[in-house]
Nucleic acid binder design. Structure first.
Lengths: 159, 159, 159, 159
DNA sequence: TTTT
DNA sequence: TTTT
């Protein structure tokens, strides 16, 4: 078997308010867009855009405390998905980011009000809304494999 | 201006022979596919697939010494591209990996014949072919901005 | 609270055979040295040396399958320790690497016999010995905090 | 030759004001301490401390705009050094961090006034002082190997 | 679909 | 489009 590694670290800003949903088993999953400025040369205004998924407590913290425009630092892995386009029938695929660690930037000091993706649950940021009415969230069953099963908000949103 | 960071590290195997092309200015650019095994739980045979771009000397070294199946370790950044689909006219986008450092794995010892993406240019691996007849390579002009201009193989392949 | 991140990725070769010890609770901990070639310019033969700690199953796998000279790819975090020198009484400190993921390089293919830091337990590599008679292993109690308690080899070696 | 990689990413706060010095050739080099909170479990107040070196423009920007306590995000490599202790004559060694990319955190938004380690040189932060009277800076000759030679502030401070 |  |  070959050596394998898959690690990504990104710092940028949310391109939209995070959406929080739940699997049938009540596992929270948060999705948001991330813009990372390239800034390689001074007259380079290019931007890279990514879709980010955060599971469980950290996902809830992002949904509760972060909104469009907020800066975050994330560490995670790249995830490839492929599917068949319902219309054209042709194969499509996509690479997005599964964040395992989200650090809140911005605010006083270094920009960290509630810090490091924890967050109590009270005092959520004004404007943060919990996604509802979900079509097409990127859930991968294998993400559930190695994690202690927990029934938190059973069946709030079918995925 | 916000903090930005974009770093990715992957280890996996080539899914196809690398293709080497040249910009009009003769800058070498190499493309290959990379398969990274997920192996999170023992019965997890999921795989993530990525498209990788390597510029200049390192790109040439990959093209000269690596073929389908070979293991590599790469360090680089994620790059987002978007375009309009010529047929459907709908907007499409893609995230791929620009490798700035390619380490050859496999072989005796740790698997490193000519090592670390250097490699003279002679004695290329049997089976390694230089891409020819190129349509649709992912070239981004900004990649040329901060690099000393060099005319190496002028105009071999139009991109 | 400020944003914090601590991530390190290294590829190099063992500078000595790994030593395996156990805490009083029977938790395995493996230590080895790692040499990483700098190779920045072709006539650069500089090398960076690090001390690496690997806990639990992965530590056992390293001890069972790897010996001096073997190439590995590790992902982990940096750990700072400080103490008072018993002789001079002056304060000393050290930074070493705690590996959370060890990938075996070298061997056929990409150099991976038993792969990715798993390894059964039988058929250990000739020459791999389990450290015994331990003074001065770098154990940090906080490493035990977030990990399910397990009695594996109770009290084999006192630390 | 074996595969080698050396990459580190840290986010934390300066433990002291940065010191800026210059090599005999006038190359700026900045040194500061970095504290990274471990925060693994909620009652974990452990901290890891590192010494960081930043060369050239980025080093100047850090010295001009950052002071003790400020949050930064850095990307770089680990560097090992060894020497003989002048008193005891015994061998000593140390691992520190050479930052190749420093992102300023903190401030409004995400905490980035002058952003990403650029910064003109005017309007330096009150309290930022340029190190003077230097003994024992960690200069490694090989750091100069692959960089275009530049005479910026010739011989301001002997090292 | 796009953030500062 | 997919590697060991």
């Amino acid at each position: 078997m070959a050596a394998s590694m898959n690690r990504v670290i990104l710092a940028g800003n949310l391109t939209r308010d995070p959406e929080l949903r739940f699997t049938n088993d009540g596992v929270p999953v948060c999705n948001f867009g991330l813009a990372v400025n390239r800034r390689r040369s001074k007259d380079d205004d290019a931007v890279d855009f990514f879709d980010v998924t955060v599971w469980r407590e950290q996902g809830e913290a992002v949904a509760n405390y972060k909104t469009k425009g907020d800066p975050v630092l994330i560490e995670g892995r790249l995830q490839y998905r492929s599917w068949e386009d319902r219309d054209s029938g042709q194969k499509r695929s996509k690479v997005d980011v599964v964040a395992e660690n989200v650090q809140f930037l911005g605010g006083r000091g270094d920009g960290n009000g509630s810090s490091g993706g924890s967050g109590a649950g009270s005092g959520t940021k004004a404007g943060a809304r919990h996604g509802r009415g979900g079509d097409d969230v990127d859930l991968n069953e294998e993400d559930f494999d190695d994690i202690p099963f927990r029934h938190r908000q059973p069946r709030l949103t079918a995925l």
